[in-house]
Design a protein around this nucleic acid. Structure first.
Length: 108
DNA sequence: GCTTTGACTGGAA
DNA sequence: GTTCCAGCCAAAG
């Protein structure tokens, strides 16, 4: 009989989310939804956002909304754009060219 | 334990 | 292009 996991499922998901975000290479970006799916949490986009905000030391600037749109508000949005442009990511208006910069995660 | 809130998403009008 | 709406998940009050 397998022992019941003492670790909450939510904590596992969050750990995966952090690990995945760490894997995004410089010059590439991803979206909340894509990361959630890669972490095994479909429709967990909001959860990705929460983890991203909570944890420290992640390349948060490489995480965008669907379609490569910046979802942040205020000064944080400005900083994110500056950081990404510094990494070579080109913007078209308020969006990124996902065709060229989206990082695709390996399938299970 | 119910309600509100948020760095979300996709589809429809 | 915009606005509205319904769905989803976890944390906070």
């Amino acid at each position: 009989m397998p022992l019941k996991s003492q670790v909450p499922k939510t904590a596992v998901a969050q750990a995966r989310i952090r690990a995945i975000i760490q894997k995004i290479p410089k010059g590439k970006v991803s979206s909340y939804g894509a990361i959630a799916r890669a972490a095994g949490v479909p429709n967990g986009a909001r959860q990705v956002a929460r983890v991203l905000h909570r944890s420290f030391g992640l390349p948060w600037q490489r995480v965008l909304g669907a379609g490569g749109e910046i979802k942040l508000t205020g000064d944080h949005a400005i900083e994110q754009r500056l950081r990404l442009e510094a990494e070579g990511v080109r913007f078209r208006g308020r969006r990124v060219n996902m065709k060229a910069h989206e990082f695709k995660f390996p399938r299970r």
